[in-house]
Amino acid sequence: MASQGTKRSYEQMETDGERQNATEIRASVGKMIDGIGRFYIQMCTELKLSDYEGRLIQNSLTIERMVLSAFDERRNKYLEEHPSAGKDPKKTGGPIYKRVDRKWMRELVLYDKEEIRRIWRQANNGDDATAGLTHMMIWHSNLNDTTYQRTRALVRTGMDPRMCSLMQGSTLPRRSGAAGAAVKGVGTMVMELIRMIKRGINDRNFWRGENGRKTRSAYERMCNILKGKFQTAAQRAMMDQVRESRNPGNAEIEDLIFLARSALILRGSVAHKSCLPACVYGPAVASGYDFEKEGYSLVGIDPFKLLQNSQVYSLIRPNENPAHKSQLVWMACNSAAFEDLRVLSFIRGTKVSPRGKLSTRGVQIASNENMDAMESSTLELRSRYWAIRTRSGGNTNQQRASAGQISVQPAFSVQRNLPFDKPTIMAAFTGNTEGRTSDMRAEIIRMMEGAKPEEMSFQGRGVFELSDERAANPIVPSFDMSNEGSYFFGDNAEEYDN
């Protein structure tokens, strides 16, 4: 993207840094990872977990959730003011799984939030270390993106479920800051804005008074975040219109849905970061690795190297396929839920299948599930090659597409044709070009129609051997075009429920 120079890199967003050079960025990201790792080690000690239990991804998720809940100030305040039966607002906890007599047992633990905050700050040299908290939120978000298709949420806001490739980060909490905003897809931002506008339509006082002023500035800020994701002048001009509207209503909703559809071809720039579970960072720190000293990046080879040398386990339900569970977590670790499966298959070195073909449910185990038949197995999170994460949407291309997802959002900077089903997408653009945004709409449609099938995206960008740390010898991959490109292809993934 041309304006790259004016933006802070995501590592800076990730670490609240002012302008830093590459070495400083690597050190501050490393410091953040160190903090998460030290916190995780301490929690495993508190909970008396064995090494194996500490490497269980379900335990990692519970521990991450506990610290996120302990620092969720708004919710904590709300819980104190609106006490609900049987919930102690000062405590947080969740299921911890232990191996007892050759069987997995679930144990519900409860801790004072104050105590968890103390352990977290102690692991982070006394700081609140917001960057580390956001990092864990993005890992949870990436896992949700890989596990669930947001059909219901899309339909509720009037969008087409086939636009799911635009929904990265749709389950990120509001408090995820600049680093969170960077990884949100165009569809996620559109959905947040539509929800806001709908509230304004239904509630006369939404934009009024002292609160209304705050609401208005939040609305304009979200519009600017979305505008910054678009790469064409016409899309940005249309966002200006939406932002400046005196009284946002149905016309703005129409414009936003139009823009979301246009992003299936004229893709937005959305950041991709490899955020790993805390149970990967903990053992690495415990083994003596100093992330701050060595430096770390979320968008280069580092996460690949770390996963190459990590042992992570997962509980497996009786009829689940461990290899499929591994694929789910591998995609989440690489922030690749909406990437082209052919690119992923090449990088991973084994075939990556669409969601609907995987015999696996989510990673988390519900409290009512029976533990008797639970097994555990090693997650295979290694890769054959590594590639640089991208934040450009890439230019655009036609490809055989599917009944489910009709476009992709690249996660890796790797040369390819970008699949999208042009006739299906263009069919949504018939007729409606009147109104105050008509010239911009016409211009956007013209650009979409001009998108050429034979153009290559990320020209000359390749993948790298894991021994090639400096990215000196790019390998331009070859793809098996007979395979499906979309992950949520004609899909039956479970729906995400809060």
Rank of each mutant, 00 (worst) to 15 (best):
L307Q: 14
M137H: 05
Q311I: 15
W386L: 06
P248L: 03
R348V: 07
Q12H: 00
P318F: 04
G249C: 03
E114G: 07
R204K: 08
E192C: 04
S383P: 07
C279A: 08
K98S: 08
K87G: 12
I406T: 14
R382A: 09
F39I: 14
A451M: 15
E14P: 02
T134Y: 04
G187F: 08
S367T: 08
T360E: 10
G94E: 09
Q415L: 01
R317C: 05
A403Q: 03
S335Q: 12
A286C: 09
N368V: 14
N498S: 08
E210K: 04
Q311F: 07
Y289G: 05
G394Y: 14
R355T: 01
P95I: 12
R236Y: 12
A471I: 10
A179N: 08
S176L: 04
S274H: 10
G180W: 07
E294G: 02
V109M: 15
A278C: 06
Y40D: 05
L379E: 04
E455V: 03
D128Y: 03
A442N: 02
V363T: 14
L276V: 13
F464Q: 09
T360Y: 07
R38F: 10
N211F: 00
R162M: 03
A2F: 10
K273W: 09
R74N: 07
M448T: 12
I25Y: 09
A286F: 09
Y296N: 14
K113E: 06
M371D: 06
F258C: 14
R213V: 07
D145G: 04
T92M: 13
G394N: 08
E11H: 06
Y52N: 02
I194F: 12
I365F: 15
R174N: 07
K357I: 06
G490C: 11
E80D: 04
G94P: 03
L379T: 14
I57W: 08
Q122E: 02
G169M: 06
M1W: 10
M32F: 07
G185H: 01
R236D: 15
W139V: 09
Q241H: 07
F429V: 02
A2S: 07
S402D: 02
D302F: 09
Q311Y: 04
L133C: 14
P423Y: 03
D480T: 01
G132F: 11
N397E: 02
Y385H: 03
T430K: 00
T215N: 12
E80H: 01
D203R: 06
D421S: 01
A278I: 13
T151L: 10
R65M: 10
T232R: 01
A442E: 08
V29T: 04
A131Y: 13
R236V: 01
S392M: 08
G349Y: 10
T430E: 14
Q409P: 03
E53K: 08
R55W: 10
R342F: 04
Q405M: 02
R382K: 05
I33P: 10
Q459V: 01
G431R: 12
G404T: 00
P423K: 15
D127N: 05
N483T: 12
K229H: 11
Q42W: 08
G460W: 05
R208P: 04
Q58K: 05
R117Y: 05
M447T: 04
A218K: 07
V329T: 02
L418K: 06
V67S: 02
R384E: 03
S376T: 03
V312D: 10
G394D: 13
N321S: 15
F71E: 05
E339C: 13
N202M: 00
I36C: 10
E454P: 15
S287H: 10
L47P: 07
I63F: 02
L418P: 15
K422I: 08
Y487M: 11
N397Y: 03
I119K: 14
P419N: 10
V363D: 09
Y97D: 02
T23I: 06
F488K: 11
T151Y: 07
R38L: 03
M440R: 01
A182I: 13
K325Y: 11
